[in-house]
């Protein structure tokens, strides 16, 4: 048995190989991704903590059962996010029916990144943007909210987003542009002064 410190230094792909031989190693995968996927679920849905946790459990079970389907040509994180996204889509209606609102904290860096990318004025009130960003995202179409969350909150590259939402990279680019435009429009519509 390899000790925990050694496993922590290993890549996701190597831990997957170990988990296929011994399921105890799958705990390392869970520990690495549980918070990221939990936040991802809460950012793209209105799920309550309990619902998100149930969903997260289903996602990890699906990841475990399908470990042999993991394509080493992809990043493990993209594969895991794609499974999470599909699971969220199949539970979408149920989650919407129990809407509770987003309460996921945002890092200052994420908020600054959004401000810079959206060309929001320099003397931006980060606190205000932080408080209102989910209000704006909530009013966007699912497909636009999804790419914005993946790009700015999950900090994924275009290639990773393409692998997660299973769309060509060019389509991701156009969706991103459209999403930014929609975000700006919603910003003006809600008369949020930043």
């Amino acid at each position: 048995m390899i000790n925990n410190d050694q496993v922590e230094k290993m890549s996701d792909e190597d831990i997957v190989k170990l988990a296929l031989q011994n399921q105890d190693y799958f705990l390392h995968i869970i520990n690495r991704y549980q918070l990221r996927l939990f936040n991802f679920i809460r950012r793209i849905t209105n799920a309550s903590t309990e619902d998100a946790e149930d969903l997260l459990q289903e996602i990890f079970l699906k990841i475990y059962l399908n470990l042999n389907d993991f394509d080493r040509g992809l990043k493990f994180s993209s594969w895991a996010y794609a499974i999470a996204r599909n699971q969220v889509i199949s539970h979408h209606r149920k989650l919407q029916a129990r809407a509770e609102g987003h309460t996921v904290a945002l890092e200052d860096e994420s908020v600054k990144q959004i401000a810079a990318d959206f060309d929001i004025k320099n003397n931006i009130d980060l606190q205000c943007l932080r408080e209102n960003i989910f209000k704006i995202l909530d009013n966007l179409d699912d497909k636009y909210r999804e790419v914005l969350v993946l790009k700015f909150l999950e900090e994924k590259s275009y290639q990773e987003i393409s692998d997660i939402i299973k769309k060509p990279i060019g389509t991701v680019g156009s969706m991103m542009n459209k999403a930014k435009t929609e975000f700006q429009k919603e910003l003006s519509r809600q008369k949020i002064k930043l």
Binding site: F26, I30, E53, D69
Partner: peptide, 24 residues
């Protein structure tokens, strides 16, 4: 409002209890 801190261990127990294995 945060994730249960024993989430990982509980899930691994569930996998073991239900004798789940990755599909071949």
């Amino acid at each position: 409002m945060t994730l249960n801190k024993h989430f990982g261990e509980e899930l691994l127990h569930k996998i073991k209890d239900e004798r789940l294995q990755p599909k071949p």
